[in-house]
Each structure stands twice: as structure tokens, then as C-alpha cells.
Design a protein around this nucleic acid. Sequence first.
DNA 1: TAGGCCATCTGGTCCT
DNA 2: AGGACCAGATGGCCTA
Length: 174
Amino acid sequence: MDARAHVHDIDSNSCDFFPLTDDDDSRASAPPPPQKKKRRRGRARSATAVHVVKKSRRLKANDRERNRMHNLNDALEELREVLPALPDDSKLTKIETLRLAHNYIWALSETLRIADLTRTPAEPWFSCSSSSSSSSSSPPSSSSPAYSACSPASPASPHHDALFGLRALVPGVL
DNA sequence: TAGGCCATCTGGTCCT
DNA sequence: AGGACCAGATGGCCTA
């Protein structure tokens, strides 16, 4: 990651110090109306115990959620690595990564499809003529990708750089 | 300084 | 019951 991640790591570490207060608990939800102080009756101790248990569960859930998001980000990072590198070496944002991946897959599928069309029927070196071009394997439909206005109206050749379909994907980047 | 991006927390919902 | 997943809220950092 980058400096941002580092900063947020610090944040997450601070979380481990148990910074939550009762006020923090209601941070994301609608703050309850200021309530009068109620005298605790009986059961106060168990109420506290319940509170502790709840807080403990919450912290565990936070930890799981953090790990889940880290896993998601790791997967996203792996995806970035297999995508064509950007010329300016800038890091793709999450949404850009997903959209670029979408278009990249689409462009590769188109390349295969066009190559298959131009190949002589006598020499199918793999069985994509009947099945893969049918809807069974259903690559991204041959229409242009949803996230892009890119419509390769004039793909130069089957061997044309597969990136032709990507250029309009991340505006101003490719 | 505003806006974009991000990590984290949180409560709700669904699933096992 | 507990975990996974999700979406909203919040606050920090960075850049134009």
C-alpha cells in the first residue's frame, strides 16, 4: 500500500487500545436523545456484564471485518498485478481496477473471438468454434463493455493489441 | 479548501 | 448463537 495505508494502520492499532466509549458506540447510528440519569436498580452488575460481553463481541466483529476487508484488498492488489500496467505508474483506484479488469477481460475475449473467426475452419486448434462462441461459456457479450463507451468499431486485426478496448476505460489514463 | 479515496466502525440481515 | 456480508457514517490524508 502507501502512506495512506500506513496512517490507517496506525488507526487500526489505536483501535486495539480499546478507545471505544459509550459515546463511540453510537457514533455511526443516530445518537440517542439525551436521557435523564436513571437510577440503576438491581441487576446493575449483570447489566454491566452484558455490556462487557456486547463490547467484546463488537470488537471481535470489528476485527473480523477488518480482516475481511484486508483480504478483499489483497485480492484487489493481485488483480492490479495481472492487469496491464499504466504508463504513468499510478496506482489504480478500486473502482478503476474493477472497471479495467472488466474491460480487459472483454477485450481479450474479443481478440479470441476475432481470431477464431479469421481462422480457417479446417484447423481449429482448440474447440472454441462451436462452444466458446456460443453462449454456453458466455464470455462478456460481444457488445461493448458496460462501463465504457469504448466500442472498437475498427479493431485493426485479430492480433491487434488487446488494449484497444481498454483505452476508453479509465478516462484519461490509457 | 473542496472533493476524492480510503480504512474503520457499526448495526442490520442472512446463513450455517 | 456466531460468523459473513453489506451499506451507511465518520474522519484522515492527499491533490487540484
